[in-house]
């Protein structure tokens, strides 16, 4: 099978990986780069839990081909913050109880980050619209919307 070398920045680190033309970014991140924080919930763009930032915009990595990431920057939830320096969205999700099973959380936080970069002070309705492609079956969304609202004033685009 023909493969192509693909280079991109993953959470700030340059990576190079050989992929087939039909390989999705999701498969590549999970199975070749071990970025398992990116979740596979449906493989069809219905659930949003595989969302990553591609050059700053949230995309479903299951609907993105790995070759499309060539030369670009990919950021997952792990690229936003860590134990020592969590992102305000991560802190807020923890504090507000916006996480139950946590399977949608990585994609949800990535979508929220994408929203806040474009619209730093979204209304609750704008937040609902922005994360409507991210399914959550546990929380009923209330605490997720609250967490994003709460984090907004603490975020800057550089976060």
């Amino acid at each position: 099978m023909t493969t192509y070398p693909v280079r991109f920045l993953l959470n700030g680190t340059p990576v190079e990986v050989d992929v087939a033309a039909q390989d999705t970014l999701l498969e590549t991140l999970r199975n070749k780069l071990w970025a398992t924080e990116v979740k596979n919930g449906c493989g069809k763009g219905d659930c949003g839990c595989c969302a990553v930032l591609l050059d700053g915009r949230a995309v479903n990595s299951c609907l993105t081909l790995a070759v499309q990431a060539n030369g670009k920057e990919v950021v997952t939830v792990k690229g936003l913050g860590n134990e020592d320096d969590p992102h305000p969205l991560q802190e807020s999700f923890i504090r507000k109880g916006a996480i139950q099973c946590g399977f949608c959380t990585a994609g949800m936080i990535v979508s929220a980050k994408s929203l806040l970069d474009e619209n730093p002070r979204p209304s609750p309705d704008e937040i609902r619209e922005a994360v409507s492609g991210n399914l959550c079956r546990c929380t009923g969304y209330k605490k997720i919307i609250e967490a994003i609202s709460d984090a907004a004033p603490k975020c800057s685009p550089s976060d």
Binding site: R30, T36, E37, K39, N40, T76, V77, K78, G81, N82, E83, P86, Q90, E91, F93, I94, R95, G97, I99, G102, F103, T105, A106, I109
Partner: peptide, 18 residues
């Protein structure tokens, strides 16, 4: 905050397929 919340928010938690 629940004891499992931070790792889930940071993307550290492993699930069955991971």
């Amino acid at each position: 905050p629940r004891c499992d919340a931070a790792d889930k928010a940071l993307g550290n938690t492993k699930y069955a397929e991971d």
